[in-house]
Simulated scan of single mutants.
Amino acid sequence: MTAVSQAQAFTKDQCVTGLRAAVGILEKWQASSDQACRVLRISRSTFTRAKQGDTAWSVSLDADQMQRISLVLNIHAALRLVFDNPENVYGFASMANDNSFFNGRTPLEVMAQGDMISLYETYRRIDVLRGAQW
């Protein structure tokens, strides 16, 4: 089997739904449009269209982009389990963090570096807060 045939195929509806959910979360985290585009590896026009809510709009995303969406959704889920109040759930990503990984930067700054490792490692460190064992 080739790598292409093994790759997960996503429907356009799945792509749109996931992207809109991730964009909504990133907006609540107070990410700039540039930060959101780097985190999700999407263009500015795709970001803008996802925000508009046009029901006729569709988009195809690759496996990397869908994995980034998944990590944003999982970070959000972990934050909801760790914190009871919305100020922390949505504010944590914008708060400076003195953990050695973040080194005084905000989780959002780290995620917005744009590489998958930074996004994944941010997820890992937040997931540990809820008691996940690595």
Rank of each mutant, 00 (worst) to 15 (best):
T2M: 11
T2G: 14
A3C: 04
Q6W: 07
A7H: 03
A7I: 05
A7N: 10
A9C: 10
F10K: 07
K12S: 13
D13H: 09
D13F: 10
V16G: 01
A21W: 04
V23E: 08
V23N: 11
E27W: 00
Q30I: 00
Q30W: 01
A31G: 03
S32K: 08
R38W: 05
R41V: 12
I42L: 07
S45F: 02
T46C: 10
T46Q: 11
R49L: 11
A50I: 11
G53M: 04
D54C: 06
T55W: 00
V59G: 09
V59M: 09
D64E: 15
D64V: 13
Q65D: 09
Q65E: 15
I69C: 12
I69Q: 05
V72G: 04
L73Q: 13
L73N: 14
N74Q: 15
I75S: 06
L79P: 01
L79C: 11
L79V: 01
R80L: 10
F83A: 03
N85I: 14
N85P: 00
E87D: 12
V89E: 09
Y90D: 10
Y90N: 14
G91W: 03
F92H: 14
A93Y: 00
A93I: 01
A93P: 00
S94M: 01
M95Q: 15
N97L: 03
N97K: 01
G104S: 08
T106S: 14
T106C: 03
P107K: 09
V110H: 06
M111A: 14
A112G: 05
A112D: 06
D115E: 04
L119W: 07
Y120K: 14
R124L: 13
I126P: 04
I126A: 04
V128M: 05
V128F: 07
R130N: 03
G131L: 09
G131E: 10
Q133R: 14
Q133C: 08
Q133K: 13
W134L: 13
